[in-house]
Design a protein around this nucleic acid. Structure first.
Lengths: 147, 147
DNA sequence: GCATATTAGTTACAATTGAAACTAAATTCA
DNA sequence: TGAATTTAGTTTCAATTGTAACTAATATGC
């Protein structure tokens, strides 16, 4: 029988939101404090760390962040000297973004920290549960695509 | 072998954050637009709908929301005539909160809508996956408690 | 070829948010 | 008791965020 009463602490969107915010918050405290980097900035770094030369728009598409958020994160990172822009000669609306040496250092420091955090988190799940969760998230994303 | 490269779109905290924000966003669009109610207000309503007479602080404890957020949501709901406060005679710092008739109507309209949304979401998961997900969320929350 | 539409990115503005400081009431304990 | 602490809730302030409007460059259609 389907639920007929709304029980907030049994309500999936709510439960997801709570646990996710706790995780994001804890993770960002790990690096925000130590490196003065916020979540959007960190996501830009993570993308450029793996794939240099992306444009801001490429980052938007990959990161599910807003245009404006990315624009600001890029500006902040440039200001801090963590990345540089090179105007694309073929299409002058775009800029190619790459981490500076300093930016790469930050990436190299934070990435293992983030992976360590994830690994620690995953210790409470069996390998099977972790795999399930991955599949479930994909399915939920698929559902959201079609909505 | 554990991961050694940070691949943002395989990184659990990130994946969770993306899917959760998509779900929360879609859900809140369902009622925010129609009822002029934001997420924090809705959460207060959901709590009082099931359990009238809670104090603001009770809501904070149950909802994982911030004190300030709850205070503001309560003030907004009172202003809109959706709830009323009655100063607790035993402890005059507290107010007992209850939905007005109008507030109960809103609750009665949104609750099934929210449950319907959840039900629709869950159609992409098998019963077993849904149960797994529930368990996984509990485990992750347990981990976050201990952190 | 030039007017129109689209795309990359930024800026302006308003709304949301949380940390910190605050008020008022209740509790503790010396 | 009554001074010091804690608790409930509010207010202030600054930071973050997204929507909408904008600029500049490119692509499209007639």
């Amino acid at each position: 029988m389907p639920k007929t009463t709304l029980h907030l602490d049994r309500f999936l969107p709510y439960r997801l939101s709570v646990v996710t915010n706790r995780i994001s918050g804890a993770l960002s405290r790990h690096y925000a404090d130590r490196f003065g980097i916020g979540i959007p900035e960190w996501r830009v770094i993570a993308n450029l760390g793996r794939t240099p030369g992306l444009t801001a728009n490429d980052v938007v598409e990959r990161s599910a962040m807003d245009k404006v958020t990315v624009s600001r994160a890029v500006a902040a990172l440039e200001h801090k000297g963590l990345l540089s822009r090179v105007r694309d000669e073929g299409d002058k609306r775009k800029s190619r973004l790459t981490l500076s040496a300093k930016g790469q250092t930050v990436y190299a420091e934070i990435a293992p920290l983030a992976l360590g955090f994830e690994r620690d988190l995953l210790t409470v799940l069996t390998a099977d549960e972790a795999a399930q969760l991955d599949r479930i998230i994909d399915k939920l994303n698929g559902k959201m695509d079609s909505l």
